[in-house]
Simulated assay, not measured.
Amino acid sequence: MTRRRSGDAPAMPSLFDAAALPAPCAAADSTGQLQPALAPAEVQALANALHQRFGGRLRLGTSSWSFPGWHGLVWGRAYGRPTLARRGLTAYHQHPLLRTVSLDRAFYRPLQAATYAGLAEQVPADFRFVVKAPALVTDATLREAATGKALHANPAFLDPQRSVAEVLQPALQGLGPALGVLVFQLSPLPVDWLRDEARLHGALDALWQAVMPALPIGDHRPLVALEVRDAELMTPALAQLLRRHGVRWCAGLHDRMPTMTEQLPMLRAMWPGPLVCRWNLQKGQRYAQAKDAWAPFNRLQAPDEATREALARVIAGTLAAGETAWVTINNKAEGSAPLSVLALAQAVLRQSDAA
């Protein structure tokens, strides 16, 4: 176990501390498989207890996976980022608590069916992906690639036909039943959209009218969810619109958004139904700030117990009602997504025991 230095933020009791000593970067073996970290018996027992109580209805995971700093937490050997990006899921899925992953890279450009298929072949049949729809259709503004500077209005924003043809269909073709949730995360909206609720709701209504009928019918029908970055969009009218189409509210826990507790009215307005949550960024942080301060993401830098306990209560209540819960966590939530998953899993079991 690594020793905490004087002045470090207190870490959660980590059943897996990352390896203390660096090691040379390894490559995948001849079959393309990466070596997973050996999960301590306590972690396997926790995963077994959750499965026995909830079956397969709890899916916890991380946002992306190609982080060399997870050596000792998820990876059994030291791998470089390119190797992890290409083949990391072959080891990731063997962690007993990681049953989904958020495919964040899809946000930056639409992925082809072959790319999705290459990821699906790395995981077992019961693994599921959370896919972010690309900014092509979720950002009202076209931006300069290098800086993110706003250029002009995006004519493809919430375009129904492009959302089906360039977003949904490639994901369905490539992932098949492994597509668990498709999240449309709206980037912060310009003022003209924020001030015109009827315009926005009309565009979303047209989007869902195209997307929802294009989903497969049956046990492998994926969820579709909406996540926003503007708190003023959280209205009863939006909840009613989403509920009418069978789209879930994605609780986005982010510096720009209200707390989990403050988002409960949206969830209650759409109850019953599955929970979808993406725990992205701690209050008072910026992505670049957290990345610089918290890399290599191998320990909890700033445990956020209030958010974790509030989220655990919602998860436990959702599961107790027989619904499913999908939660993915970013490194920028507390400093290390795998350790946040571990701490949240412990909290869910504790909340369930207390109910």
Rank of each mutant, 00 (worst) to 15 (best):
Trp65Arg: 01
Val167Cys: 15
Pro216Cys: 10
Thr235Leu: 05
Trp193Asn: 04
Gly317Gln: 12
Phe297Lys: 00
Pro296Ser: 01
Ser352Leu: 10
Leu119Arg: 02
Val131Asp: 01
Val164Asp: 03
Asp255Thr: 14
Ala91Cys: 06
Arg313Asn: 08
Arg195Ile: 13
Asp139Ala: 10
Thr147His: 05
Ala20Ile: 01
Arg278Leu: 08
Arg143Phe: 13
Val43His: 03
Cys277Tyr: 00
Thr235Ala: 07
Gln282Ile: 04
Pro190Lys: 09
Glu166Gln: 12
Gly148Trp: 00
Leu21Arg: 11
Glu197Tyr: 11
Val191Trp: 12
Arg5Cys: 08
Glu305Asn: 04
Val43Met: 14
Leu223Trp: 06
Ala171Ser: 09
Ser352Cys: 15
Gln52His: 12
Glu232Thr: 13
Asp304Val: 02
Asp219Thr: 05
Glu227Pro: 15
Leu97His: 06
Cys277Val: 10
Cys25Asn: 06
Arg57Gly: 02
Thr259Val: 05
Arg53Asn: 13
Gly7Lys: 04
Gln351Phe: 12
Asp159Ile: 14
Gly180Arg: 01
Val101Cys: 06
Ser14Trp: 13
Thr90Asp: 06
Ala20Val: 02
Gly32His: 01
Arg57Ile: 10
Leu179Glu: 00
Pro10Asn: 08
Val327Cys: 10
Thr83Ser: 11
Ala18Leu: 10
Leu226Ser: 07
Ala28Asp: 01
Ala288Ile: 11
Val164Gly: 05
Leu172Gly: 00
Thr100Tyr: 08
His220Gly: 02
Val341His: 03
Thr261Phe: 04
Ala11Asp: 08
Cys250Tyr: 04
Arg243Asn: 13
Thr115His: 05
Leu172His: 00
Pro134Ile: 05
Ala203Glu: 11
Ala20Gly: 12
Leu15Thr: 03
Ala225Gln: 05
Leu179Cys: 05
Leu34Pro: 02
Ala337Met: 03
Ala333Leu: 08
Thr328Val: 15
Met234Arg: 10
Thr138Val: 09
Ala347Glu: 11
Met266Arg: 11
Ala41Arg: 14
Pro82Asn: 02
Gly32Ala: 03
Pro10Asp: 09
Leu168Tyr: 00
Trp271Ala: 12
Thr31Arg: 05
Val131Thr: 04
Ala91Asp: 00
Val167Asn: 05
Leu349Ile: 12
Pro222Tyr: 02
Asp292Cys: 04
